[in-house]
Amino acid sequence: MKKEEKKILRNKILSIRDSLNRNEKEIMDNEIFNKLKNTELYKNARNIFIYISFSNEINTINIIKKALEDKKDVFIPKIYKTNKSMKAIKLNSFDDLKKNSMGILEPIDDSKYIEKENIDLIVVPGVVFDKDCNRIGYGEDITIDI
């Protein structure tokens, strides 16, 4: 798929997502939450790498709270713009976060991170996926140093 086609498709799906009313979105968020927490992948995972939802993305706050409640180790992304990289940083509490320049919550302290080989489950944001499960993201390539 060409870059322009991806952009058009992504914008179309984002428009549909943004048009959901609060109740519709909450129902869908809860359905995703319930499906995820009942999977064997979630149940067996010790280390979970998950994004903190932003704007109209699927609400991941309840998933994160549940994982912390279940005594799982939760790691969230920290983006480093200077070298376009990302690390998975351990989250102990929502008090350990602050908004970055884009308004997205990120860890204040990035000293406790995990290597990718030790992650059991990764939850990534996505707007559009193709039939081969390839994600069409927001368009910027970032090296993941996890």
Score class of each variant (00 low, 15 high):
3 K>C: 06
6 K>E: 00
9 L>H: 05
10 R>G: 01
10 R>N: 06
11 N>E: 15
15 S>E: 14
16 I>G: 04
17 R>D: 03
17 R>K: 13
18 D>F: 13
20 L>I: 03
20 L>Q: 07
21 N>V: 01
24 E>Y: 03
24 E>V: 03
27 I>P: 13
29 D>K: 14
31 E>V: 10
32 I>N: 11
33 F>L: 11
34 N>L: 12
35 K>Y: 15
36 L>K: 12
37 K>A: 02
38 N>R: 01
38 N>H: 07
38 N>M: 06
38 N>E: 08
40 E>S: 15
40 E>K: 15
40 E>Q: 15
41 L>Q: 10
42 Y>W: 05
43 K>N: 15
44 N>M: 04
47 N>T: 02
49 F>L: 02
49 F>H: 03
49 F>C: 07
49 F>T: 06
50 I>E: 07
50 I>H: 05
54 F>V: 12
54 F>A: 12
54 F>C: 12
56 N>F: 05
59 N>Q: 05
60 T>Y: 15
60 T>C: 14
61 I>E: 09
61 I>T: 11
62 N>H: 09
63 I>L: 15
64 I>E: 07
65 K>F: 05
65 K>E: 06
66 K>A: 13
66 K>Q: 15
67 A>N: 08
68 L>G: 14
68 L>C: 12
69 E>D: 09
70 D>T: 04
71 K>M: 00
71 K>F: 02
72 K>L: 06
72 K>E: 02
73 D>E: 13
74 V>Q: 10
76 I>N: 08
76 I>T: 12
79 I>H: 03
80 Y>A: 03
81 K>T: 13
83 N>G: 04
83 N>T: 06
84 K>T: 01
84 K>R: 10
89 I>W: 09
90 K>R: 04
90 K>C: 06
91 L>T: 02
91 L>C: 01
91 L>F: 03
93 S>Q: 02
94 F>G: 11
95 D>S: 04
95 D>Q: 00
97 L>T: 02
98 K>F: 10
100 N>F: 00
101 S>P: 06
101 S>R: 10
102 M>V: 09
103 G>T: 09
107 P>D: 06
108 I>S: 04
108 I>P: 05
110 D>T: 15
111 S>I: 04
111 S>R: 00
111 S>E: 01
112 K>N: 11
113 Y>W: 04
113 Y>F: 01
113 Y>C: 05
114 I>G: 03
115 E>A: 08
115 E>M: 11
115 E>K: 15
118 N>M: 05
120 D>M: 04
121 L>G: 06
122 I>S: 00
122 I>P: 00
123 V>L: 07
125 P>V: 07
125 P>R: 09
127 V>P: 02
129 F>D: 02
131 K>V: 08
131 K>A: 10
134 N>F: 11
134 N>E: 14
135 R>A: 10
135 R>D: 12
135 R>Y: 11
137 G>Q: 02
140 E>I: 05
140 E>D: 10
141 D>S: 02
141 D>C: 02
143 T>Y: 11
144 I>H: 07
145 D>H: 08
146 I>F: 11
146 I>V: 08
146 I>Y: 07
